[in-house]
Amino acid sequence: MPERTVQLSELVGKNLLEVGAGRPRSVTADYGPLPILRVADVLDGRIETAEHVQAGIFDRRTLGPKVSQPGDIVLTVKGTVGRVAMMPLEGSIFSYSPQLCYFRPLVNGPLVPRYLYYWFKSEEFWVQANVVKGQTDMADFISLGDVSSLKMRLPSVAEQRAVSEVLGALDDKITVNERIAAASEALALALASPERWESRVRLDGICALRKVQVTPVEITEAAVDHYSLPAFDSGKIPAREDPAGIKSGKFLVQGAAVLLSKLNPEIPRVWNVLPEVGVPALASTEFLVLAPIGGVSSDELWSVAAQSTFRNELASKVTGTSKSHQRVRPAEVMASEVVDPRHFGADGQKIQNLSGTASAMRKEAATLSALRDTLLPQLMSGRLRVKDAEKIVEDHV
Rank of each mutant, 00 (worst) to 15 (best):
G79R: 13
G56S: 01
V84D: 02
T49L: 05
R114T: 14
I36P: 03
I36M: 02
M86G: 08
K78G: 07
A50T: 09
T76L: 02
L116V: 00
F94Q: 11
D59N: 04
F103I: 11
P88G: 06
Y117L: 01
F58A: 05
A55R: 11
E48H: 15
T62W: 11
Y115F: 04
T76Q: 00
G56C: 00
I36S: 03
L37I: 13
P113W: 00
D41V: 12
V81G: 02
R60H: 06
Y117R: 02
I47F: 12
E48M: 13
V112D: 10
M87G: 04
L37G: 14
I47C: 11
V81D: 02
G71Y: 03
R38P: 12
Y96W: 13
F58E: 01
T76A: 03
E90A: 10
A50F: 11
A85W: 03
S68L: 06
D59Q: 04
G71R: 07
D44L: 15
I57P: 12
F103D: 10
L100K: 09
F103E: 09
Y96A: 12
G56D: 00
Y115M: 01
P110H: 06
L100G: 09
C101F: 12
G109F: 12
N108D: 05
Q99I: 15
Q99K: 14
R38W: 15
I36K: 02
G71K: 07
Y115K: 02
F103N: 07
G64N: 12
V39A: 03
K78M: 08
H52W: 09
S92V: 05
I57V: 07
Y115E: 05
P70I: 14
G79L: 13
A40M: 01
R114F: 11
T62E: 09
T49Q: 04
Y117Q: 03
L43K: 02
L116K: 01
R61T: 07
R61G: 06
L116P: 00
R83L: 08
L43T: 06
Q99E: 15
I36F: 01
E51F: 06
G109S: 14
V77E: 10
V67N: 13
S68N: 08
R38K: 15
G45C: 07
Y117S: 03
H52D: 08
